[in-house]
Every structure is written in structure tokens, then in C-alpha cells.
């Protein structure tokens, strides 16, 4: 539980309807904030654009991993059947690429799929035990019927008053600080 030593590490603005959130997100985007995120009970069309989120690096990671898988497959099949164990089977050439294409394809897909999984987990910062936002109980409201903009202020670049003023300007009537114990250090967004 939080005690008197708790410090404010973030701010949350809660909205009751989705349009207000999307508008507020555009305002925050234009104000040039960096450490912030939106939480909604369901996927909201157009929110990425309103937030100004840049294209995800996930596709590039997937393609790179897939090409690595392709090279591994070529090395594996060619190295085994033409260099290390040159056994002629069925009168075919040692380096019968036709027979190996399914393996090229499968390893390409396997590497790409595993990289997709891993990079999604990595870029979504999954696998944290807890964060001040989750400890606050606000998530229970967000996953029900509320829409939230969350700021992380740990780096101290922006004052809580400025954020509060900006959120009030966007019509937000429920603004709460996020608290954390002095000795902890959990990322919020």
C-alpha cells in the first residue's frame, strides 16, 4: 500500500465518451508531448492518427527475421546434402534446390512468425509485473466504460500543473495523479 512517501509519477485524464478522447488526443499530439498513451475499452478507429503514432517497426523486424530464416534454410539444406553428407538420392543432383524450396518457405515463415510474436511482446512492453496505473485501480474503469489519456512525468520535463491545465482545456473533468512508492521504479506507458 502507498504511504506518505508516495510521489506523483504520472497524470491520468478520464473521459466519458470516445469522441472527446480522440479530440483530446489530437490536442495533446499538437502540444508535442512525448510520454503519454491512450487507453480505451475497445479498439477506436482513427485514434492512432489522432495520437500521431508513427508506423510500427514490427513489419521490418518480421521481414528481417524471415530473410534470416531463408538464409539459414539455404545453408542448412545445401550444407548438409551437398557438403557434409554428399549422398546421391534418386539420381537427383546433390544441390537439388527444387526439393528444398518447401524448407526455405517453412523456415522463412517460422522465423518470421516467432519474430512477430517476440517483437510484439517487446514493443508492447508486455511482461511487467505491475505499473502505477494498474496499481491505481483506474484500469478497472477503463476496461468498463471510460477512456483515458495517461502521462508519465517521471523525467520531470513537464509539470503536473501544465498537464492538468491542458487536460482541463480539452474538457476533461476527472483528472487524477498517479502515485508510486519512492523505492519503486515502474514504467507507466
Amino acid at each position: 500500500m502507498l504511504d506518505a512517501n508516495a510521489k506523483t509519477v504520472g497524470m491520468v485524464g478520464l473521459y466519458d465518451n470516445v469522441d472527446a478522447l480522440v479530440q483530446a488526443a489530437a490536442t495533446v499530439r499538437d502540444a508535442g508531448h512525448k510520454n503519454w498513451d491512450c487507453h480505451t475499452p475497445y479498439p477506436v478507429h482513427g485514434l492512432e492518427k489522432a495520437m500521431g503514432i508513427k508506423p510500427s517497426p514490427v513489419p521490418t523486424v518480421i521481414l528481417t527475421a524471415g530473410l534470416v530464416g531463408l538464409i539459414v534454410a539455404i545453408a542448412l539444406t545445401g550444407g548438409l546434402s551437398a557438403i557434409h553428407y554428399p549422398i546421391r538420392i534418386g539420381g537427383k543432383a546433390l544441390l537439388s534446390w527444387q526439393a528444398f524450396v518447401p524448407i526455405y518457405f517453412e523456415l522463412f515463415v517460422l522465423f518470421a512468425a516467432l519474430a512477430a510474436m517476440a517483437s510484439v511482446i517487446f514493443f508492447c512492453k508486455l511482461g511487467r509485473w505491475h505499473s502505477p496505473l494498474h496499481d491505481s485501480g483506474i484500469m478497472k474503469e477503463i476496461t468498463c466504460d471510460r477512456f483515458a489519456i495517461v502521462f508519465e512525468t517521471r523525467d520531470g520535463d513537464e509539470s503536473h500543473e501544465d498537464i492538468r491545465a491542458m487536460l482541463e482545456e480539452t474538457g476533461c473533468r476527472d483528472i487524477r495523479p498517479l502515485l508510486e512508492q519512492e523505492d519503486e521504479d515502474n514504467s507507466i506507458i
Binding site: 539420381g91 527444387q98 524450396v101 518447401p102
Partner: peptide, 12 residues
């Protein structure tokens, strides 16, 4: 296309 080619190539 590759399935057709590979099966013909394999069966020979």
C-alpha cells in the same frame, strides 16, 4: 505453380 513444377520434377 511451384507445387506443379516440384511434383513433376520429383516424380521424374
Amino acid at each position: 505453380a511451384f507445387s506443379q513444377y516440384m511434383l513433376i520434377w520429383y516424380a521424374n
